[in-house]
Design a protein around this nucleic acid. Structure first.
Lengths: 136, 136
DNA sequence: ATTACTGCAAACGCTTTGCAAATAT
DNA sequence: ATATTTGCAAAGCGTTTGCAGTAAT
């Protein structure tokens, strides 16, 4: 089964890449719909799955919530905001994360690991500041 | 709002603790239903949420799949099997994981982190060995 | 010409919710 | 007595799928 570069697929890829965020399927759908009003949400889902299987984009399955898709398919870590759920890429040289050599833990053969750091992003910190002031 | 120790809640807690696995809501429901046939799945969901909010059990939200609940609410990491999705607790002294002092990465205020190690559990390794032999 | 892909609508799996009745405090 | 909790059924959400038609190779 060879991939065909349909208009839909091309636009989905272009939007994801130019947007440079970690969008969910429906966020992406909202943007794409403006460029191609008749596209269906199912097409977006299907293409995101196909593109990530093909290694052209990354798929983020973070902790029980909606999947997000990453314009950057290379191996890297993420940081996400506990408040607004936005996700950012983490710099490669993030130390203390290189223990793939955890080796065999509890008899498991370790094939990979995922480090998720939870925090509050600058924007939400600012918002919280504002709210605090509003409450006074 | 103070917690009431209903029969339902007590049984849910007891099953989770005695089972000592990381069960999903419906796995737990299946077990509990044998002891209390008229209990509803919604009650199980509600109680698991309440109990984890109260810090009496832990909630595991792993990568886009079903939530699992942990009899042990203390802070620790998990290892899960990429094949059968079973989850085990990780020993505390797992080194290289103590970098809560990643500090302020990208302007985020870091409130926590989650390390998910992906591997294949002993049982599944054994099964794969068997299958390999079967294929020959 | 062939076969991957599309849009639509309907179904899916897991989880949450509104309600009136039941029960723990 | 009074609030929390229950069971039920229905709705919710994100996602997937069957289908007949459309379009890329």
């Amino acid at each position: 089964m060879q991939l065909r570069m349909t208009n839909q697929r091309e636009i989905i890829l272009r939007v994801l890449r130019s947007n440079k965020q970690h969008l969910t399927a429906d966020e992406l759908y909202d943007v794409v719909k403006k460029l191609m009003p008749r596209i269906s949400l199912a097409t977006v889902y299907r293409n995101l799955e196909i593109l990530s299987d093909a290694g052209m984009i990354g798929k983020l399955e973070i902790s029980g919530r909606q999947k997000r898709f990453d314009y950057d398919p290379s191996d890297h870590h993420h940081i996400y905001c506990a408040v607004c759920h936005r996700v950012d890429n983490l710099p490669d040289n993030c130390q203390g994360v290189k223990q793939k050599d955890l080796g065999r833990v509890r008899g498991y053969s370790v094939t990979g690991y995922r480090l998720e750091i939870v925090g509050i992003c600058p924007d939400c910190q600012a918002l919280e500041e504002k709210e605090k002031k509003g409450d006074e």
